[in-house]
Design a protein around this nucleic acid. Sequence first.
DNA 1: GTCTATAATTGGATAGAC
DNA 2: GTCTATCCAATTATAGAC
Lengths: 228, 228
Amino acid sequence: MARPRRPLLSRERIVAAALLLVDAEGLDALSTRRLAGELGVSGPSLYNHLATKEELLDAIVDTVVGEVDISMFATLAAPGGGVGWRAALHAWAHSYRAALAAHPNMVPVLAQGPGHRPNALRLADAVFGGLVDAGWPRGQATRIGALMRYFVTGSALGSFARGFPDDARVYAGRYPHLSEAHLLADHQRAIDDGAFEAGLEALLDGLELRYSRLVGARPPAAAPGSAD
Amino acid sequence: MARPRRPLLSRERIVAAALLLVDAEGLDALSTRRLAGELGVSGPSLYNHLATKEELLDAIVDTVVGEVDISMFATLAAPGGGVGWRAALHAWAHSYRAALAAHPNMVPVLAQGPGHRPNALRLADAVFGGLVDAGWPRGQATRIGALMRYFVTGSALGSFARGFPDDARVYAGRYPHLSEAHLLADHQRAIDDGAFEAGLEALLDGLELRYSRLVGARPPAAAPGSAD
DNA sequence: GTCTATAATTGGATAGAC
DNA sequence: GTCTATCCAATTATAGAC
């Protein structure tokens, strides 16, 4: 085949296909040949659109980060928005986790930090700026950004429930407290979602305690939660 | 070289060398040929001690997990040990993070769950058992195990501070709130350690709030913390 | 802007000598 | 229990035709 009338490829098509491939088969399955195959072209054609494989990886990562909603941090400076930081962090954490959990194989790459990727830097800028606007000292705002990333990336890296074999014989005798661990996999979604939400609420409660000390207010009356 | 008088290799030597290699150059650098080179033998010799590469990887992972101290969960059932769960989780989290942060390239593998690895299953058994002994309902104990893993693995996956380019020009103009982000890398240890400790304390405060509601006690008076 | 052909490595694993 | 030799498949990337 010679030069087609219209390009068969584009950066966007390539990145989208690469993300699909990584999601389906892992980072190691992302080779130029394999990706080209999925796109119906031959290997070297990709090099007309991307200089190196690393550039491709960067593009995929930043696409994922671009799916995270950061709009909630824009309004925290407004008067009376002083309590908004908690709701903003909560909503952001859920959006962040949803974006990452949709592409778990990308998390180890993404968790290395923003590097020079625009969407990742925009995200960091919005979070830090929002927290400072809300009254957090800069040092604490940095820490909150970091600890939130720790929690969210950790939760998206791998399912807790799916990590346990569903064969009861694995646990019998040897691990007395795990006698029902073989059932975890059957409730993966509920357990992972529940653990994330429980951890997020605990984390935010802890931060709110610090915030109330910071501004010299009474600690908030914690909302009653459901026992389990 | 024929059969040596004494074996040149052993499972332990191989695993130790493999861990060194992964720590120094990443998971992709771990090939049978390369590893054999480090050990001063030729490639196929490894197969006298390990059936497959996957078996090797499993052994490395469980070695790392085996470095985590879980002894603090053994005594939580004792009368009056009812408040010990917080201290136990705190000490465990620090030990857990130290073990993982020493081998960050292994974290994505390890975060997939215990699988059939003995040390990982022992760890899960100890944590869950300890929390139940301390009075947590089983469902909540599961969630706490999960959310702690999220936080610790996330914190060990990659440095927050090192993720930001140290070139101030990256941020100039485009990311107004990150005008000092180029300094983060210079204080990597302090920032990452500080964020981990802050997050851990917030998390434990939040859990203690829930625990106090659970047992019908007054919420704990939070210890005064240092502002920043 | 895609193709074919190919360079130059590298990968995991096996067979059989000693 | 280690060696050499070998298999077969895969990798990133380039050169040059069309």
